[in-house]
Amino acid sequence: MKKKAIGQSGWLWTALASVVAFIYFFPVLFIILTAFRSRSDTLATPPKWIFSPTFENFYHIFFRSMANSTEYVATGFHVYFFNSIYISGMSVLLALLIGTLAAYGFSRHPLRGNDTYLFIILTTRMLPPIIVIVPIFLIFRITGLAGTYTGIILMYTAFNLPFSIWMMKSFFDELNTEIEDASRMDGASERSVFFGVCIPQVKAGLAATSVFALILTWNEFLFSLLLTNKLTRTMPPAMARTIGGEINVDYGLLAAMICLFIIPIFLITYLLQNQLLRGVTFGTIKK
């Protein structure tokens, strides 16, 4: 077996990998199936693998029954959906702007103690968020940012910055500086070296960075729970309403929400498979 580890293998290998992938994927499959099950099918013993699919759970993401009747009211999930897109979009954009500049700085104009700066920046990302949450609250109170879009966008920008800086620096580091030097010789200004020479070369990097930052922001729970209000709340805290309201976990509803979440991420991951490694290690490992 081992001798074929590197190189071409055939359909036999595919079959083996399929079995392994199926076993590994099984819990996710269970969740996806649950999204189409009614509650009694989900909790059936023995488990029901064949059942008549229902789209009820997806409907209930957006509409819930009123407290006293069978009428339905909007859950406001579309607002959270919009907030998630708006807030993560804005913060990723901002982090990318500031982060790319900084990454370029770190890569091309190293400061004294460059590595220390980079280390501190990475540490802020590795921190358990629970440590800073109390003082962040205080700052939000003083500035009146609690509950506003500006506040949470700023928060997420800072959350995404270390990632963006490390990612973009890794892309800038890979570039061949000779091209830049050549255009400087031709009299190009620093500005046009940056925009005209460097940026076009790291377009793929920009795309990968923004997508991964987007995924991280998209899934963030704690800050959104604590720093937003009814109008600015994003989807992850809204997902928590499926746990312990009037019944135990509403598994179907939760699964339906997870499905909505996972589909875009799935597609993106597929398209960016080559950049995946760099993405999940914050740009610290290139290949």
Binding site: A102, F106, R108, P110, L111, Y117
Partner: peptide, 8 residues
């Protein structure tokens, strides 16, 4: 250098 990283 410093100016580029200042915003971050």
């Amino acid at each position: 250098g410093p100016m580029l990283i200042a915003p971050a």
